[in-house]
């Protein structure tokens, strides 16, 4: 089965970073499926859970601390996801499947690296392609 990673990328940072990265025609792993969201703070936990049931891993990428377009959306999201991680661990979930990173729009390359790293950690690299 092909690997699948769902990415929720904030449109003010991570989504732009991905666009920037695209100009360099990078090689991204198979099955990375990015979604543009309007702020990580608007990401409902329900959606994260749904993504976790359908994909091998979920990447949430938002703006670095202090740089949120909506002042503290990323902070709120960070707390909510941290709390969700506690719940997931209580449920016996593999916590590596949910990954949260903070980066600014200029860090396209880093985003690419993070995606690869995520695939490696979940041992998804050799699957699919």
């Amino acid at each position: 089965m092909k690997p699948r990673i769902i990415g929720f990328l904030c449109e003010w940072c991570a989504a732009r970073a991905l666009e920037n990265l695209a100009f360099c025609h990078p090689e991204l792993p198979v099955g990375f499926q990015p979604f543009r969201i309007n702020c990580t703070g608007s990401l409902e936990l329900e959606v994260v859970i749904k993504a976790l049931t359908e994909a091998d891993g979920v990447l949430v990428a938002g703006c670095p601390p202090g740089e949120c377009h909506f002042r503290e959306g990323n902070l709120r999201a960070g707390l909510r996801l941290k709390a969700l991680k506690r719940v997931l661990s209580a449920l016996g979930e593999d916590l590596r499947r949910l990954r949260i990173i903070w980066l600014s729009s200029g860090e396209g390359e880093r985003l690419g690296e993070e995606i690869h790293k995520f695939y490696r950690e979940l041992s998804l690299e050799d699957r699919g392609s």
């Binding site: 409902e44 936990l45 329900e46 709120r76 707390l79 909510r80 709390a83 719940v87």
Partner: peptide, 9 residues
């Protein structure tokens, strides 16, 4: 999840 969001927020 909704209850959790509300409390954490």
């Amino acid at each position: 999840e909704r209850l959790l969001s509300a409390m954490v927020s």
